[in-house]
């Protein structure tokens, strides 16, 4: 009897908890997804909603929807873990079975998502690619036209790199802390940094992954500073990693000697840029990125536009621009 009671208690507790969590998670999207026949339904599929960058992106999309409530219905989705490709694939499938008209997606992987997106596209769902560009070779091979709406990461990184290069002399040594090396954005940003360094005649002595995160980046940065005594700058592919690099520089007592640059312009780096611990970052207006994608989808759905790539602006952020 006691055993049964315990079992019952366990099950009820677990069920109640999970229901509660589901309720919390869904309230937001359900509220905005009252489907009616005439309005198109657009699904926004992002990476981790816990990541500040994607969170503001989602908020931007919801704001866009709030301004145009009559034009479309919006479903916002994110995955738990940035690199969990399969979860994102499942999500695309769910959205297809839900019968959405368009999917605006920030792919967790630039290749692995293509097959499922092809199926969606073949099924007549308009697919707009934002943030992380899908592999153009594969798209071409499959003869697939999935318009990319977003910034040019390589240009952004080059702009940041140029600010750093201006402070350095030819043959100075710098290191790059990359994102997860298999993603398109990580590759583009690294290339952009390298473009700027090459142009300035600056040597890149080490390139290693910081997994887009603060602590791994901190460990890698520390090791780089220990190994290369003449290091003049750490170029980081996102701001979280730049925070880790700043801490490593400070721990090594090299604040005066080593510059740190980032990418994304998250709120936590602003004080660092203002007080000079970071030299520059790039703002690709992530908050509007999804909204751009949604607008592009609406334009195409209404027949006003042809499906084609659109480039959005990237702004350079330095102490100077913040003070303006």
């Amino acid at each position: 009897m006691k055993k049964h009671f315990k079992l019952l208690l366990q099950t009820t507790t677990c069920t109640a908890l999970s229901l509660l969590l589901i309720a919390c998670g869904q309230s937001k999207s359900d509220k905005t997804s009252t489907e009616t026949a005439e309005k198109p339904v657009i699904a926004l599929i992002m990476k981790s909603l816990a990541n500040e960058f994607f969170k503001t992106m989602g908020e931007g999309a919801e704001m866009h929807h709030a301004e145009n409530p009559d034009q479309y219905d919006l479903i916002v989705n994110g995955i738990k873990n940035e690199s969990d490709v399969s979860a994102q694939v499942d999500m695309v499938e769910q959205m297809m079975s839900r019968g959405v008209d368009a999917i605006v997606i920030a792919p967790a992987d630039s290749k692995a998502l293509i097959p499922i997106l092809k199926r969606a596209s073949d099924a007549g769902v308009l697919v707009i690619n934002i943030d992380n560009k899908l592999d153009s070779d594969i798209l071409k091979e499959l003869n697939l036209n999935l318009p990319f709406v977003g910034p040019n990461n390589r240009d952004g990184a080059r702009m940041v790199g140029e600010v750093v290069a201006q402070q350095l002399q030819a043959n100075d040594e710098v290191a790059i802390i990359e994102g997860i090396t298999t993603t398109f954005n990580a590759i583009q940003r690294r290339l952009g940094f390298e473009d700027a360094m090459q142009a300035g005649g600056v040597k890149v002595v080490s390139k290693q992954s910081g997994y887009w995160e603060m602590e791994p980046a901190n460990n890698v940065a520390s090791a780089m500073l220990n190994e290369h005594e003449n290091l003049k700058a750490l170029l980081c592919a996102n701001d979280s990693m730049a925070l880790g690099a700043v801490a490593a520089v400070r721990a090594a007592g090299l604040e005066e000697k080593v510059l740190v640059a980032g990418f994304d312009n998250i709120s936590a780096v602003r004080p660092l840029i203002l007080n000079g611990q970071m030299i520059a970052t790039a703002d690709q207006h992530g908050d509007q990125l999804a909204a751009f994608g949604i607008q592009a989808a609406l334009d195409i759905l209404s027949g006003g536009e042809q499906p084609k790539d659109q480039q959005t602006v990237v702004d350079l952020i330095t102490q100077e621009t913040l003070n303006q």
Binding site: A50, N51, E213, M214, E215, N218, S240, L243, G244, V246, A247, R250, A251, A268
Partner: peptide
């Protein structure tokens, strides 16, 4: 100690 070393509190820490 983790937070003090990085100077920031990151909700993605410790994955």
């Amino acid at each position: 100690f983790f937070t003090s070393r990085l100077g920031s509190a990151d909700p993605n820490a410790g994955v």
